[in-house]
Every structure is written in structure tokens, then in C-alpha cells.
Design a protein around this nucleic acid. Structure first.
Lengths: 186, 186
DNA sequence: TTCTCCATGTAAGTAGTTACATGATTGG
DNA sequence: CCAATCATGTAACTACTTACATGGAGAA
């Protein structure tokens, strides 16, 4: 009976995020949180609280190797991924888990119900949604250099997800503008 | 001291969804759930379990008026929105609550970490993401007639959110195709 | 010295889900 | 009469968040 292959460990998505970020060079829990904020937070978040238990779990399973590396008197534990860890990550990526594209957007919700509003209020709302996407695009443009740097050294995937982010916010902006014009006419 | 204006009731987002759906003509809890599935579920979901407590709350606050209207022997309670309810809804839409555009997408997460994969596996992944968006666009096209019907009678907002949905999935598809081509070259 | 950053931790709470249960009505 | 749909409900659980706490290190 084949047992305890890494696949059987049944990692949570948070675990995978932590594992993946360590693989990309984040060393401590703190750095993982930062890396998340600077890259995937537009389609996935993870709170600081989840990271540390996750790190301990992954170390226990020997998917990460951790060692204590205090900064002076301040305790600090740094991690690196093991071969087992890479395997587990690869296997999770190849596995076909359901991928539901879960969007929860109060902005679109407001738009959907916006016929209770009078025309000026509806236009203001639309505009605020557009501004939100414009701001988001600006932020994404801001982190493009990092993604392009990764691409230059052979990892195009962060750039790919970044492009998706900008692409669909730009698409939203366009729809907003179309309807803003139409509402203004009426 | 001004008190107990509906705004002070502090509705949860689920409450607002229920309120809004009743306003658009959904009468029972069951119909609300159906309306959600047929319209906003691409940017907001609500489970059946949440709906009934929400209905009771809204009735208690007199934002909805409910009456028992059994189908034969089967119990059934139907609701309609009150003037107070419309006010509360309008006020919530005008209020500036934070609108964070929360996306949680395992698909994009996989793409982000996809440099552990070899090229064929990465291409397969990309393709599966593209297919997912294509399927989603097809579903959205399927519900367009209803949204267009609403537009014809003066409520363009469901169509607006629907267009946004298709627009950003189409944007995603385009990015996928771009990178699929590039990966195939390498 | 004071502020920001680094670094990790606990406790309590909220929101939401799945699974399960019940039973009546309608249409073929 | 059988399946699908209508209609509502309870219980248990999971994931995730907020708030709070601690304190050293480095920079201005």
C-alpha cells in the first residue's frame, strides 16, 4: 500500500500559497505576507494569522525546512523549500481542483440594484466604480517592473497574472464609460 | 435627537441583496435564491440558509411586509418591499461603503505559481483557464435575454453588470491566448 | 528619542458553507 | 406513481478576520 505521498497531505490553499511564496524566495513569515501583498493580493489574500501555523504544518510535513535565524535578540525563523515541497506544489498545480472564479464585489452589487437611484446618483455610482478600476490599474502598473524582472529571468507567470488584472479592469472601465455616456444622454 | 432612521439599522450585505431582490419582484425566499442564481451570482452569492433569517429581520424592521400565502398545504411566506425598505436600499447604495473588488481565484493562483511546471503542463493550465472563461461567457450570453428585457422596460442595470462580466472574461481569454502563443513558441 | 519597520503571537468573533431533514405540489 | 420542483428549516463546521499584545532593530 503506497502511503504518505505528499499529495495525500491535503494542503489547504493557504498552505500552497505559503509554500509557493517560499519557493519564490520569501524566507520568513513576515516576508511571505509582504510578497503576497505585492503580487497575488489582487486575486488571493492571506492574513498574517494564517501564515505561521501554515509554516509549522509545512515544516512538519517536511515540505519546508526551517531554521532559527534571529536578528540580534529578535527571534526569527527562515524557511526554504525541499524537493518534497516542490513535488507537492507541482502536484497541486496539476491536480484538477475546482476553480470557481469567486468574485465578491459590492460595487457591482450596487450597480445591479441601481435603478432605485435617480439618474445623477446612478451616474455618480458608475463613475466611482470606474475610478476604482482606474486606481487599481495604476497600482498594477506600479508593480509591473517587478513582474517584468521576473520574466527577464525566465518566470513569465507573475507578469501573466498581472496582465490579466489590468486587462479586466480596463474592460470594466470601458463598460463604465459606455454606460455613463448613455445615462448622460437620457 | 433623531433616531431609528432606517440607515441606523445597519444592514448586512445579505440583507441588502434580499431587500433588493424582493424589490425586483422575487416574492418568496425560494424565488430570491433563484433570482440570485440567475443574475448576480457572478459577483455575489448568498446561500439559502442566510435568506430566511434575513427575511425575518427585514420584516421586523418593517423594510419588508410579509404575509403567509400557502400553496395548498405547503407553508409559504411572500414579501413585498415597503417605502421604508426602498429608502433603506437607496440610502445603502448612496452611502460610501468600501468596495474592495474581492476576487479569490484559484485559477489565477495556479497560474502565478506555474513556473514549477514544465512547459506543456503550463500550457494545459493556461488553456483550462481560458476554457473556464469561455464557458462563463457562454452562460452569461444565455442570460442576456432577461437582462435585455429588463432594459426594455427601463432598468438597464442588470444588463450593465452582465456586460461587465462578459467584458472581463473576454479580456482574460485574450491574455490567455497571447501567452499560450508565446509559450508554444518557446 | 521617537518613529517606522521587522517579527511573531493569542483570543475572540463573524460570515459563510455543507450536510441533512422534511414534506407538499405539479407535470408527465 | 414517479420525478422534479417548490419551500423552509436545523446543526455543525470551516475559513477567515479583527483586535490586541509584545518587543527588538534601525533610521532620522
Amino acid at each position: 500500500m503506497t502511503r504518505a505521498r505528499p499529495a495525500d497531505l491535503d494542503l489547504s490553499v493557504s498552505d500552497v500559497v505559503v509554500l509557493g511564496m517560499v519557493r519564490l524566495g520569501a524566507r520568513s513569515g513576515y516576508e511571505i505576507k509582504q510578497a503576497v501583498e505585492a503580487s497575488i493580493r489582487f486575486f488571493w489574500t492571506i492574513s498574517q494569522v494564517q501564515i505561521y501555523p501554515s509554516l509549522r504544518r509545512l515544516e512538519k510535513y517536511r515540505l519546508l525546512r526551517g531554521r532559527s535565524e534571529p536578528r540580534g535578540n529578535r527571534p526569527r525563523r527562515v524557511y526554504e523549500i525541499t524537493a518534497r515541497g516542490e513535488d507537492a506544489l507541482r502536484r497541486w498545480l496539476e491536480e484538477d481542483v475546482p476553480m470557481p472564479f469567486e468574485l465578491r464585489d459590492i460595487g457591482m452589487l450596487k450597480l445591479f440594484f441601481a435603478d432605485v437611484l435617480d439618474t445623477p446618483a446612478a451616474i455618480r455610482l458608475l463613475e466611482s466604480i470606474r475610478l476604482r478600476s482606474e486606481a487599481r490599474v495604476a497600482v498594477l502598473r506600479g508593480i509591473e517592473p517587478q513582474a517584468e524582472a521576473a520574466e527577464a529571468v525566465g518566470n513569465p507567470h507573475p507578469l501573466l497574472t498581472l496582465r490579466m488584472g489590468t486587462a479586466f479592469h480596463e474592460a470594466m472601465i470601458k463598460v463604465c464609460m459606455d454606460f455613463e455616456r448613455e445615462f448622460a444622454r437620457a
